[in-house]
Amino acid sequence: GRQLFSSPSWLLPEDDFRPKQCGTFAQPYSDVRGAGERERERARDAGGAGGWRSRGARPSPRLFIHDGFRDPLGWSGARGGLTVGDFSAPQLVLRFSQAAQGPATLALDSLSWLLLRLPFPSVCQVLAQLPKKANTAGVRIRTLVALLHGDLHPPEQLKALHSLARVVVTLKQGDGSPRVAVTLHRKRRNKVVQKKEYFTVLSGFALKHLGEPSPAAVSGEEVIQKDDASAVADPTANLTFNLRLSEAERRAKESVPLPYQFSEEKKSSLLQGPTGQGKIYYEPDAADDIDDEDPDDDLDV
């Protein structure tokens, strides 16, 4: 997912922040695109995928673009563009002091580009130092927003950046049309708020908030999921034969005496003494040659 970091301070209420910024950035952006720069990885209020730009916004003119896309490495010798060497706190402050007058919101697009090319600690240092350095130079940076592609960087770097930021917004493409933004907001007095919101981007960069997953809906979903799980776990669900008994069948089954069970009746019949001596009745047939002297006479030995 894509992530937006905001640091070092978050003074605007969120509802105020989003529509305004999107509105402000919309017009200049279409100009940039008109110039043929067809970038697309635009998350929320931060811009294109290639290169990095930082902008300071102020009342009039409201938007400054420091273009780091056209010639970040100085290959084509274009002048005035932002280069990778400019990413140090003093250099950036120098740039901003020429542009910004009032309190500024700074959007950095993209941090991924920088992280792939500069040593990680130096990027973190610049991010941490920038507001203070800017403040001493008379530029107030109210908010710093940076765009980052989370899947391009090692997880430990992401964690370090997360801890630098006051607000982390993770954007995901939902299963359906609405996108999901998970916001982790570290408030003052050690409070942490996490919330999940659905949103969609309308034409003209207007952001439409589609609400949060309601607790009732969430628990309802969970109940349905639990039911599904038990149904899956039950192997007797779809059998072609009947495994269950009706009440009458159960009674009939229970009334059948089993062979090893001794009822009173059976016991008495077995314990009853023999009525007389046993006798053998034998009627000899014609072939029998009975000789009382030699009982084994008929054996062919």
């Binding site: 110039a35 043929g36 720069e37 067809r38 290639g50 290169g51 896309f69 056209r70 010639d71 970040p72 490495l73 290959w75 084509s76 792939l116 090319r117």
Partner: peptide, 21 residues
């Protein structure tokens, strides 16, 4: 190096996409 390749693509995009449409 990966960054060199990405730099190359970056500048190709600047030249081909942005300048030459």
């Amino acid at each position: 190096r990966l960054t060199h390749i990405l730099d190359f693509i970056h500048y190709c995009r600047v030249t081909v996409n942005t300048q030459l449409k």
